[in-house]
Amino acid sequence: MDYFLLVISAVFINNIVLVQYLGTCPFLGTSKSTDVALGMGGAVIFVIGMSVALTWPIQKAILEPFGLGYLQTIVFILVIASLVQFVEMFLKKLLPPLYRALGLYLPLITTNCAVLGSAILVQKNGYGLAKSVVFGLATGVGFTLALVIISSIRERFDISPIPQVFRGVPIALITAGLMSLAFLAFKGMAS
């Protein structure tokens, strides 16, 4: 039940993009078509899960016992950047079909603040390892959900009579605002 609430909270109530504003750049940059959105979403779920599982032991086993908590930012970003690089090489060599599906999006993920954000958030919230990984995966699912919804809306924009000045980023932001309004309605579901 605990985990169920955690997942619901990370996917809907505290949706990483629409409520917590993390990962807005890839959210706008890769949401022009649903296929791209699905690929990006899959890669994000994978990388957030892996990076949380990796940064959690580093924080607990190295940074905290030695009083190096202030190095958190620099260590986490380096771990994530090398993890992304490593995953890319690994997939290319051993799982070519998966690489073809996700490979294009992997390098974009290093600067996705949703990844670094969730690695830091689980430490702030004080979750255990299992809970952290579940939270990370659910956060990725929330990101994918928001990305797929907005990309399917944006595909419609191509054939809609949108005023010239609103084309592109402005209308996408306003759509995201309306989606965020809808997601705020989940707030009453659980505390």
């Binding site: 629409l18 409520v19 504003y21 005023p163 010239q164 000045v165 609103f166 084309r167 980023v169 402005p170 209308i171 996408a172 932001l173 306003i174 995201a176 605002g177 309306l178 965020s180 309004l181 997601f183 705020l184």
Partner: peptide, 21 residues
């Protein structure tokens, strides 16, 4: 709240577009 941020920024960018044109 969150929706206001997206909508305000969208309107400002649209205004910028209008000015550029």
């Amino acid at each position: 709240k969150a929706p206001g941020a997206f909508i305000c920024l969208g309107l400002i960018l649209a205004g910028m577009n209008a000015y550029n044109r």
